[in-house]
Design a protein around this nucleic acid. Structure first.
Lengths: 162, 162
DNA sequence: CTGGGTGCAAAGTGTTTGCACGTTG
DNA sequence: CAACGTGCAAACACTTTGCACCCAG
């Protein structure tokens, strides 16, 4: 399976069109605009709503609907052009898969997301799953903590835990 | 902060009562029964609904409500007696924190959950967060794959990805 | 007897679906 | 011109909330 790491925009679009054609799907303005927006804001992790609002604002003539954004994001994820991060109750955030695999570190106070990549952990995950007879297909790893800035600015409130 | 690893049931109840008292909360039959059910099925990871159904069935005289189960689970999580696993769209599953820290390996086909613990990864996570100035408080690591049994029984369907 | 807890139903979120109409290939 | 895609609103699934009543301390 090919991947889309470090892909330029033109190449990304061509790749996308090929996938669509291969699966008898259509290349619409809405899909193009969503992909473009994600590409141009490559460091952001978009919730469906924030992506909806941004495309709505930048391309008002399209009058894009939230359902279309959801459908497109699911399509991009199905065809491995995007991946999603799960944020519990507050839903998912999406990012393009056009950079090398990485995991996320999330500040519990300001929600800042830092990406990192670590071969030692990746390798170890393979070893562990193999030990249990699993065939590893993917993983979810999110480290939660307090970023440098927030450590200085605030004390995390304590609920009076015993 | 003390922890509740390997705690016997009586000790767990005492601990729970102390936490409640300290925070001006009350020890009710509903809370007792929910904790007991989780303790007695220590290998299960309960969704709020499955826990609701089980307690409803075993203690019909209490006529427990789903809202109470949710509130109790949130309370247990707030006071670090339980933790939750996130399962994307299908909600959360809860388990007591009465065993050593571990992570989860989940079969994408049969949903089987295997617990594992790995010092190398834990240690590495500390190193990584430290490198970025984060203070690590907790993490989420779930490895997804196909378990031994399902590898034999089935081929994972392919969506015709390009 | 007071304040927190409970069950119920209603309200909130985030996401998906059914449908009539529009657009792509 | 035949699918497939779109926007809309309704439906969904999961979780929280408001409230009148209940019960632990």
């Amino acid at each position: 399976m090919s991947n889309i790491e470090n892909m330029e925009y033109d190449t990304l679009i061509i790749k996308f069109k090929n996938i669509l054609k291969y699966n008898n799907l259509k290349f619409t303005k809405q899909r193009e605009v969503i992909l473009k927006t994600m590409y141009c804001n490559n460091n952001e992790h978009f919730s469906p709503i924030s992506l909806y609002e941004l495309t709505k604002k930048n391309y008002p003539e399209l009058n894009i609907g939230i359902a279309t954004v959801y459908k497109t994001l699911n399509l991009l994820e199905d065809y491995m052009i995007a991946t999603s991060l799960s944020f519990g109750l507050s839903g998912k955030k999406f990012e393009l898969r056009n950079k090398p695999h990485h995991d996320h570190m999330i500040c519990k106070i300001c929600d800042k997301i830092v990406e990192f990549e670590d071969d030692i952990i990746e390798k170890r995950q393979e070893e562990i799953t193999a030990k249990y007879g699993f065939k590893l297909t993917n993983h979810l790893m999110q480290l939660y903590g307090v970023c440098e800035k927030c450590q200085k600015n605030s004390k995390h409130q304590n609920k009076g835990k015993f």
